[in-house]
Design a protein around this nucleic acid. Structure first.
Lengths: 332, 332
DNA sequence: TTGTAGGCGTTATCAA
DNA sequence: TTGATAACGCCTACAA
């Protein structure tokens, strides 16, 4: 890295002190008009740009935040990243993105790296089998605030941005009931994640509210992989009263399930309707799509997470550290 | 950001000098065994972590590189990002990702930001209508090397990583010829990008080589949007001798074209075969896919770009500043 | 084997 | 209105 022009060089060339140059360029009112002109002129001529690293060092902050997501091939998270990025850019912050691939050891390694990088704060999606937030707690103890996004543990002390899960699941279930399905199913997400429980509750509540207008079965896959979804579908479809209205924890699961049907029960493809969480951009390319999706507004969630994090970083008392974003049903 | 433990604090507590502590922690052989033990012990106990910002400042580098891509919803670039990230992580580097959305003004704003952030180097995909690399040149003049990825201008002075475009296009075209298509078409990419010309050349060469076994028409859309692809398809399909074997500059265009056919000429859906550049993960979810794709190995391209950039940053004479990655035909 | 001193570029404080 | 000085945390010659 070639050396950049520094304040000192400018000051030498102008015959004024370094601090004068600094102040002039930072619009300090105590600098005379004439001097300021000269300084600004030379700075432009020499293409002076302040050394951000030095500045950050001096201010004891990095103007960088970390963003930890499971997988950047998941469009939900891509949109969330964009949301974070928008707000961050507006506030002069940079964003360091890393993916855990839902492996806890990777997650911990990333955490170490982020601490080394001196991030001012963190936005994170925990891995599905995380039950222990100690690594995160250590960061917080070191003064680096953490905002959890999308997935959370049941811990009121954690700042978090999530979907209004129960309501959204209820809306989705009502949609399936309205379409006249007699046998419903819900394919759940990772058990230790709050959202799974909440969506399940919404599903069950909707059935209750409608006086058990239909039967509902809960299926619990081991992971979010296609293989596990296939296994669940195989089980469900083997029943005589197989479900025809299926709510999926993630739209990706619904897509996998549809692929399974196409392969194994093509004749049922038109009887069975899916609703999944996540209104993904890629849906528009699909010929067989879920009947509807819950728009989770990941971009908005990202924005809110970043705003919340900025408050925590600046030690301002955040009005609320639990933000819930409403979901909307989008019929395809 | 709460203050972290510093070398000074450790030294005070141990009653030794700061430099002793520093050396002890950096495995300087001139430090006595006993002292080193004491220092290391206390450092662990106090959870000392070196202040990376101070370190970077002192070393005049940021251990950060910038990565500029058109769109993070494009799976090609997501995979490229991953490739960059792998190599970067291994070399202790962090990656700052920003997207231009193919808007040149955004691209320039990002460039300014990256310079402010003090990145040590840059990997960039230029916007399609970029003809003037001046903003990039200024960065390079400031000692910040730039590696162009995926898209390039015809300028041998630029370090770049691209696909072996001509060869790949020839392979793809031969595939369509082998499938017996009499009328071929190639839907081109942005005219000022090298890859467009090269792929076009490959298409034409393949036809030549096979003694004009089939007719080939070149179509030039204005942009990569679905609307423009639709317009091209409308034109092509209106002909009596409409093409049945179509090579697309990007698989996304092929997908858009298939969607168009499904809507407007469903009866032709099974006659027409596509090959597109980019073997995207989302293909597996599609019912009507291109007959084949060119695997562009975006992850590998990302890795190579990062390796090349590391060489440029370290001022090592890079063996080659033009890396071409071969593409493979993947039949679906 | 350990310590001292200086410097990296910037900003803030206080004195001139 | 300007300048001198110290400080941020770390590293590294060089001196002791």
């Amino acid at each position: 890295m070639k050396k950049l022009v520094t304040l000192k060089e400018l000051s030498l060339e102008l015959g004024v002190s370094v601090s004068t140059v600094s102040k002039a360029l930072n619009n300090d009112p105590t600098i005379g008009h004439y001097t300021r002109e000269r300084v600004e002129h030379l700075a432009r001529a020499r293409h002076y740009i302040p050394n951000q690293v030095a500045r950050n060092f001096q201010r004891r902050r990095s103007l960088t935040i970390g963003l930890i997501v499971p997988n950047v091939l998941d469009q939900f998270f891509v949109q969330a990243i964009n949301g974070v990025d928008e707000v961050a850019t507006a506030k002069q912050y940079s964003v360091l993105v890393s993916q855990t691939l839902d492996v806890e050891s990777r997650s911990n390694a990333i955490l170490d790296l982020m601490r080394l990088d001196g991030v001012d704060g963190l936005i994170a999606t925990i891995t599905p089998n995380t039950t222990n937030l100690t690594p995160y707690r250590q960061l917080e103890a070191a003064g680096i605030p953490v905002v959890y996004i999308a997935r959370s543990l049941n811990d009121p002390a954690c700042a978090q941005v999530t979907l209004l899960n129960t309501d959204s699941a209820r809306i989705a279930t009502n949609f399936l009931l309205d379409r006249g399905h007699q046998q419903l199913a819900y394919i759940n997400g990772p058990t230790n994640v709050n959202a799974s429980q909440q969506r399940r509750t919404g599903f069950e509540q909707a059935l209750q509210d409608r006086h058990r207008l239909a039967d509902g079965t809960i299926y619990q896959p081991n992971s979010l992989t296609a293989a596990d979804t296939d296994a669940i579908m195989a089980k469900a479809m083997a029943r005589a009263d197989y479900p025809t209205g299926i709510l999926a924890f993630k739209t990706y699961m619904a897509i996998d399930a549809i692929t399974y049907l196409k392969r194994t029960y093509p004749e049922r493809l038109d009887q069975i309707e899916f609703v999944g969480f996540g209104n993904l951009p890629l849906l528009k390319h699909l010929s067989h799509k879920p009947a509807a999706s819950i728009e989770e507004n990941p971009g908005l969630m990202g924005q809110e997470a970043m705003r919340l994090l900025m408050q925590l970083i600046s030690d301002k008392p955040a009005e609320s550290t639990h933000i819930e974003v409403p979901g909307e049903l989008v019929v395809h």
